[in-house]
Design a protein around this nucleic acid. Structure first.
Lengths: 203, 203, 203, 203
DNA sequence: TATGAATGAGTGTTCATTCAT
DNA sequence: AATGAATGAACACTCATTCAT
């Protein structure tokens, strides 16, 4: 009942299109916030028509969710990579390394992280529990404790607190701290958290 | 021919009106989120006309800012009260008490806290630094360290991490934890943070 | 959070504004159909801003409902007026008169009638029963039957059928029949319906 | 390297495909209305791709037209069947039978009838004239009148009114009237219409 | 001070239709 | 014949903000 149609449809693999849309959305959200970005701008950014967005996402919120998943997946990959190269039994080194990687990754992606985790309302509570990153850390802490490397009565809560301390320290850091600031930061967090689980402060 | 005595005095002390508006806004924001609440609903909640809102606040964001200030002020009062009753020199007791009060206050006002601190976008960074609550804690930590009660190379960062650990633990807690859950929570946080500054875990 | 505002608000009595909106909507609906008319066009037609529409009507469908009510009310007035001037006891004259008025009124307002009664879906069934016009006719038929002026075992069904015959005949008539066409139409309907209730055909 | 035998033959006789599309459309239209049904849903219902729809129909309205034609054709068949078995010269029996068949068929297919006749806007006028069902009835009435079985000055108008009376009575009936309700209905309509053309009421 | 009718730019979402494969 | 990714105009509805009274 409506009229329409002109531009030539340029078919691309669905995965590519979706990623392009996500990339465009991420850039805009990061630049001006989620609410302040319109779907119109997203599609303009991705170089597709309005309707195409809705071929790949059900609602506006939908990209944000997709962005979150992608962020977590990439984050975990990075932690994984960082953890490799240490003998699994060197618990303390792994713990230090985890914190180091977390701090630096978050610093690199702080804005993205905030976007993806603070934006949506009914998200705040139970967030950490469901958060795979926390789960990863919790596993490490529980295993290390079991191996006698440190003490942690409640591995989950400790993981949450370590995770939060990392966050807090990062949020507190300036916009783009230099390498030495980062070192200091990592060191402070490591010391605090090491001590928090009964280890001596970081060397 | 005066009007009948029905209409109540339409003018109220400005401070009262303002508070009523804030109360209405807070209730609504808490219930359905900031974005999801309209100015219309706020004025309806406060029992005034649309225009009246704009007599007391310049924009919609304005109430949120006012709400934040009020929250911080009240929070500090509560911490203050909690701190009183301990000799200023019993540092460890004051530290424990601070955490206890923080955990419980935040648990009581969690939703409000989230609303007031997570809601607005260009707020995330520098937040803690500007946060009077953190400043308060930082003072305590710095003084205790100076008095030799514990160790803290970087009082500010430590304060931020303690504060964050408190937050994280709370966010992780279920909707309305019972008294014993709270006790456990307080104890875990206290232990972790005590150890984080070189003290033995909480008794 | 949005910007806005320029045009000077020109306050009018609510009833006037509402009527103006309804008039604009009716003209548009009549001209191009309900679905084909946008709220934008309605407000343009009424000379007000988009939002003003929603001050007076909850949805787009809402005007249509209002239009329907107004149509029925006006229609009944007209039938009433037609019925006056005949002694209440001259049943046959009143019956003839009712049909005459109905045919002519519907012919005058055919498009409006169709708009208002055919447009909305969950309307078709039970429509006649709830229709005040049918109720009016039903009353007349029942009373006439009781007075022995004619026969009608089931006044309600007869009213429905007379009403429908009127409708059918009108729908069948060309776009704008001349006076003599109308006379013929009225006469044919009167004859058929008179006979339908056991009276001799119209003179 | 032929593809595995999974995919069923993708091409079907055009007539079948078309019917499947129409069936799907009819079911959907009946269930949720024409406007409320999307082409997407139709093709999903028919198990074909979007583009296939446009191989068989030029626009969305097109199916509705096709549905109307199919409805009328089937309806006429049924009337035809009903008429058979009576000697062509028993006019009154044929008239009664026509009404009986019409009432019952419409009751069986009321929703479909409404869909197909009320839905499209520029349809209301001239509808009955163009309607083959009315033409069929008109032929019967004209022939009966010519044969002296009854009186009808204007066979066309009478046919329209009888047809409308049938409709009205049906629309007025509840959702799914039982057999005895149907009988009563048929009887009332027959009586009214018989009398309308100068016959005694139905026995 | 308080009102509330009026504003109008802006938004998310839908969907009939096309066309390269 | 059949597909389904892509289109983009259109639309209903929202809501922060203004201002004459």
């Amino acid at each position: 009942m409506r009229s329409t149609a002109t531009g030539q449809p340029r078919t691309k693999p669905a995965e590519i299109r979706r990623e392009e849309l996500m990339d465009a959305a991420q850039a805009l959200f990061l630049g001006k916030g989620f609410t302040e970005t319109s779907v119109d701008e997203i599609v303009k950014g991705a170089g597709v028509a309005k309707g195409t967005y809705y071929v790949y996402f059900k609602t506006k919120d939908d990209v944000l969710a997709a962005l979150r998943e992608r962020f977590v997946a990439r984050f975990l990959e990075r932690l994984q990579t960082a953890a490799d190269g240490h003998p699994p039994s060197d618990w303390i080194a792994r713990f230090d390394r985890w914190i180091d990687a977390a701090v630096n990754t978050y610093l690199d992606e702080r804005a993205l992280h905030d976007l993806v985790f603070h934006q949506m309302r009914p998200t705040h509570d139970r967030l950490h529990q469901a958060n795979p990153v926390v789960r990863d850390l919790e596993g490490l802490i529980a295993q290390g404790a079991q191996a006698g490397a440190w003490t942690a009565d409640n591995a989950h809560l400790v993981a949450v607190m370590v995770f939060s301390a990392v966050h807090g320290a990062i949020d507190d850091a300036g916009e783009s701290p230099g390498p030495s600031d980062r070192k200091r930061l990592v060191h402070a967090v490591q010391s605090f958290c090491r001590m928090g689980i009964g280890l001596p402060p970081a060397g």
